[in-house]
Nucleic acid binder design. Structure first.
Lengths: 223, 223
DNA sequence: AAAAGCAATTTTGGATACAAAATACTACTT
DNA sequence: AAGTAGTATTTTGTATCCAAAATTGCTTTT
């Protein structure tokens, strides 16, 4: 399948109380990431309840989850609003990604099996030929495949949240030309470092990979 | 006041829907941190509702917040349990603290005012003479005072969560003798670096401060 | 006509009630 | 006596209902 349809819990960095809530979270997340629900837009519980054909209760639960992912702002007794996008938020996300993913790859390295590296490689082969829309999803999957063996639940959960958060900006900003080629090359380089179990090389590669991507995207904010 | 009583929202790294829920979160958090509610213990909604004299609804809300803080594990349709403590979890927390707090101090440095540095200094003076119980709280406040100006909501929220998580282990493990003196000295050193607006020195100091503390505490796990 | 105060409406937080899932218990089989 | 299947109980998830807070709109005043 060329454009992978994510399972309902694919976007749930934290455990979700029910499958129904998980579906609502996924759908709202997608609407926010694509911009279908604009930044700053109010999210009325009643309206959402009608849209999904449920009571307000699962909606409230879903909104809570969206809050921990940073997609909405909740204030006591007030309407919740979709979080605004900003250069500052973008930097927040990428500063954290840089710091945490370097820890993740280093911690994972010792436990990384050949099978896992090959799995990442297969995802990268899919990335190479795919459209920009699927890129975000596959890129996310590629990185998580390499980080998952680190066996650090908190770290993985947070990195997952940050990837989700970054998706908003991948939708808003168009990738500069040549960026995809650079990214692909760095993924190959990263896999190579993993194959040699070279933590330092992998971390250095990742640092450039994320840091350069952030710098390139930041230029788009000028537009 | 020597043993500071924290306001209800002091332990809320994320916005909380109501003051009532905030109180419940705070009280449960304290019970979990001190071990009064043991790791692995089940948290029945009905029982908690009766304990706090409210319905199950605010309890569910509180549990959701405790989950994002990593204090409980929630599974669909199953009872929630207090998260277990482990060496692995401890490393998870401290690896993240090390990575994120270094980013925080560097980002904050440019915006740090003299007044804020002095505020941190005053907290440090309180730390110097206080009992081990208050140490965790004041240490938390000291660090956050220096990080807050970084203007990175996600980063600050996560660091706050990690301090809360670390508190569990400060309660479980007894600090090795001489550790407090070392910590105090490093705090003074950190303030000095901030006064000179020396990012590199501050980050280096912080790296040692957190890394050494983690190493010393890890030894306690052997016991 | 603009601003401020007040009332009506909307919207959220919490309580109660019900349905579905999980757990515990019992009785039965081997 | 140990294990298993089936039932009863407990516990969670969702819906509905009520109260409190916030937002909106209008009226009144200057």
């Amino acid at each position: 399948m060329k454009a992978p349809v994510r399972s309902s819990d694919a976007f749930a960095p934290v455990k979700i109380s029910s499958a129904q809530v998980a579906d609502i979270v996924t759908e709202l997340r997608n609407d926010i990431v694509t911009g279908e629900i604009a930044p700053g837009a109010p999210l009325g519980q009643e309206a959402l309840a009608e849209r999904f054909g449920v009571s307000r209760m699962p909606i409230r639960e879903a909104i809570r989850h969206l809050e921990t992912m940073g997609f909405v702002n909740v204030e006591s007794n007030k309407r919740t609003h979709v979080a605004e996008t900003s250069l500052n938020d973008f930097r927040d996300i990428y500063d954290m990604r840089l710091a945490l993913e370097c820890v993740a790859i280093r911690s994972a390295m010792a436990h990384l099996t050949n099978a896992q590296i090959e799995a990442a490689e297969r995802i990268q082969q899919d990335i190479a030929g795919t459209d920009p829309l699927s890129f975000g999803q596959l890129n996310h999957a590629f990185h998580m495949t390499l980080y998952r063996p680190c066996n650090r639940p908190r770290l993985l959960s947070q990195v997952d949240i940050l990837f989700n958060a970054a998706d908003r900006y991948l939708c808003i900003l168009k990738a500069p030309s040549g960026m995809r080629a650079k990214s692909d090359a760095e993924h190959v380089e990263l896999i190579e470092a993993c194959r040699k179990r070279d933590s330092a090389a992998a971390e250095a590669c990742l640092r450039r990979h994320i840091g350069d991507a952030a710098a390139l995207f930041e230029e788009q904010f000028a537009e």
